[in-house]
Amino acid sequence: MKLIFRLIICILFFWINHADCQSKMVSIKGGTYIPLYGRDSLQVTIDDFYMDVYPVTNQEYIKFVKENLKWKRSSVKRLFADGNYLMDWKSDTELGTAQSENAPITTISWFAANDYCKCQGKRLPTIDEWEYVAMANKDMADARQLETYNEYILGWYEKPKTFNNKIGSTFKNYWKIYDLHGLVWEWTSDFSSVLVSGESRKDVDNDSNLFCGSAAIGATDLMNYAAFMRYAIRGSLKAKYTMRNLGFRCVKDERINIGK
């Protein structure tokens, strides 16, 4: 009897520990929608998946850096992150004075974000997955037609330094996900599939010399200015870039217990 009791305590302890190091995820029911930039058929089908409720925080990232020395600021390879990587940190494992543990991690490169998710047994969301979840407001799965939805996002673009705010400080959307709008921009696994150059003067000739088939891809809903901004940012990024207002969150495909 005593043995079983101890065993239960032990398992409980393990679970608590496990839950602690795995950030909370919720399930997203897949579906079909038309993103701003799609494929040939315009419609995109999303499978069911799980998404982190919040962006990855400074605190979580510190833990990651302590366990993965190659992502320390002093030892990160220039191939994988530019000179601004974790620029506001006091040292390799300490935040700067103005930074909060529960604020989203920023100034990380795509390579760092990608490796972080991989280490958690997760992955970065694709653009289509991210946009699918992000088109929800508080109570609708697709609120893109609402004026208030677009106004909220554009209002955020005008607010300075929201990357210092704590996670969960914006609204909880239809999928029970926080902070997709209003805190930081987020990396996606295939950000480099956006073939708009972000520079309007360049877009005039579709950059046909540089991209094959870029003329085949056009925006579907030019009214969605907020989304257009996101695509423009993605199109202008390189994977080793780090920005003060660019963070990330992870997703995974199914709910199998991840032992690693």
Partner: peptide, 28 residues
């Protein structure tokens, strides 16, 4: 798939699958 994306990112090559077996990509 992930290895190729990572490699493309190092080269700053952009690509997107626009239909099965058809891609749009940078010529670098």
């Amino acid at each position: 798939e992930m290895g190729v994306r990572e490699f493309a990112n190092v080269l700053a090559v952009k690509y997107k699958e626009i239909a099965p077996m058809d891609f749009s990509h940078s010529n670098i």
